[in-house]
Design a binder for these strands. Structure first.
Lengths: 344, 344
DNA sequence: TTGTAGGCGTTATCAC
DNA sequence: GTGATAACGCCTACAA
């Protein structure tokens, strides 16, 4: 068992534990002699400082927590990776927690992090299902506790919390303009869950992009999914049976798109011929698809970095401005001139 | 700021901190009266126990760490999800760490976990590049420290460490038999990096499946990738230019398959006609592809659960047997009778 | 430069 | 059942 403490090191090095501590934590007031001896002994004994004790005393843990809503969604694993790398570069560890799109799991994770006294939190917040905009009680406690907090990707209408978000308005305007140019006027939207601010943002950006292009917004062409593959498949089936037979569709995230495209493949729908498709989130599978799928993508790497930077500012007592990244539209062969209705 | 300690709670409840502690940690020796009062006060004050202090005293953290080699690989995010859920059910938190297929990052994470005194470790071990089978120095220290440790997915030849692995021999024999039946005799293998035991296992299982089916093993048809999409793309290009023009290919993981399939789409290769494809790892994108891709899949959920269970046994002082899961072959339309060579 | 002496928040050990 | 008290491992005034 690893029970070697700083006292053991000090004893073996023939110094006091205070000196050993100073050497091991790089305090300047140490002699070359003790530095050498302590370092050598510590290495030989395999001394690993107890982070618990250290941060109990110093009230900092050099650890931040990142709460995402679905580990298995590549969108969030990209975000997690970016945050982790940036935090790592700043000498901090990152706890990654998974809310599973569930307020209860979110709160459990937040409680655990609070209890572990992380130095800060980066959160993709879940709204409450019934009342999408109200932070959960645990979130309110976090805020009340004064723990440095930053929202990323999604947000809640809490004025004091800096947030890093993405705006898809411009990209969607481009996308819809492109579709209109190709002759599409009946365009469906497979959206995400209303408790996610991103789902609402994408939906309203879609509506305003339609309006900006002089196309009418038809609520009957909006399907409410949940950002997961199964709901994308449901949306695809819903579309197949839809009386209006739109000729193009925008899908709110990659898992839903993959689910939907699978259904359409099974149904023999030719993408880019019978149905034009644009999906949010650029993942490798979109380029594998034949034809490749046009995407609206967010720069997760930059967003993740920005979140860490903003959090560091909050930890330093500043109040960083909210930051909004602009998503990018990439046209691909999944877009083509109108030919026939979906079900043809 | 959240500076409410157990003493504050005790004071407000009119009991000693010892009693407060007993109530808050569910110790049986408490009266109903104090239980009520303490609980009420704690809630009112928003008391959050300091996990640092608690585990400093109790020498347990109710936390385990999971080290995977690539967060963005869906294979590992599935595994992570399974481990997390199972650990959560057992009342433990999970730290998820990302080695990025890199021994140095692996070691940093392990050191951080050791320093945080996690109760146990579940690791997908990285071999050293130069000497795939030797555990890194840090891994040796972990082992020496006696921290409960379990390997999952990959393994190292350390006799004392329980490991949860998968065997693809049977599945590959089935797969190759199927290909042979369809007339394929020249079958390529796009493999993973040698420092991963799974890559070696899949490769040797491929070879023995070829042999078992009476087909000759041709080293010239083996491509060494690294489990990532880019190397799959490289492998696909390599195959396109290969003088032997195999008619079928087995790919060692999903990201590589997606990379490869993208290249083949661009090159106009018709999968399931000109080239039959089998990929390891069943991810949604495999079913989205037209035609759907035959897969060899592991039951990550069961493996993740088994890893947690094994770790719990180690923590309880037992020595669980190594466990080997059997992978499953699923035939799909990406397999078809031989027609023409790849490059035709 | 070094050592001594608390103390961080909690729980375990004793008495009562 | 409850309350003092010590101890977990480390860091940091303070004094030397």
């Amino acid at each position: 068992m690893n029970a070697v403490t700083i006292k053991d090191v000090a004893l073996a090095a023939g110094v006091s534990s205070a000196t050993a501590s100073r050497v091991l934590s790089g305090h300047p007031a140490t002699s070359a002699a003790s530095r050498e001896k302590v370092a050598a002994v510590a290495k030989e004994l395999g001394f690993v400082p107890n982070a618990q004790a250290r941060s109990l005393r110093s009230t900092k843990t050099d650890t931040i927590a990142l709460l995402i809503s679905d580990v298995r969604n590549p969108y969030f694993s990209d975000l997690a990776h970016a945050v982790e790398q940036q935090a790592h570069a700043a000498g901090m560890m990152t706890f990654i927690g998974n809310a599973n799109e569930d307020t209860e799991q979110q709160d459990q994770f937040l409680a655990a992090m609070l209890s572990r006294r992380v130095d800060g939190l980066i959160v993709v917040p879940q709204g409450l299902d019934e009342d999408a905009d109200r932070p959960s009680p645990m979130m309110q406690r976090i805020i009340a506790s004064g723990t440095p907090l930053v929202f990323v990707d999604r947000t809640l209408p809490e004025q004091r919390i800096p947030s890093i978000t993405a705006s898809s308005t411009g990209a969607l305007e481009e996308a819809i303009a492109q579709l209109k140019l190709l002759g599409h006027t009946s365009i469906a939207f497979l959206g995400g869950p209303d408790h996610a601010s991103t789902a609402r943002e994408r939906h309203s950006a879609f509506d305003s992009a339609m309006a900006a292009n002089g196309l009418s917004i038809n609520p009957a062409l909006h399907f409410a999914g949940d950002f997961r593959a199964a709901s994308g498949a449901d949306g695809a089936r819903w579309l197949l049976e839809h009386e209006l037979q739109p000729t193009a569709v925008v899908i709110a995230d990659a898992p839903m798109a993959i689910g939907a495209l699978t259904v359409w493949r099974e149904a023999g729908i030719r993408i880019g011929k019978q149905l034009s498709v644009i999906s949010f989130d650029e993942v490798d599978a979109m380029l594998m698809h034949d034809p490749p799928i046009a995407t609206i993508s967010h720069d997760l790497t930059s967003m993740g970095r920005a979140a860490v930077t903003a959090l560091q500012e909050v930890m330093a007592g500043k109040s960083p401005e909210p930051q909004e990244f602009i998503s990018r539209f990439t046209a691909r062969e999944s877009l083509a001139p109108t030919q026939a209705a979906t079900g043809a």
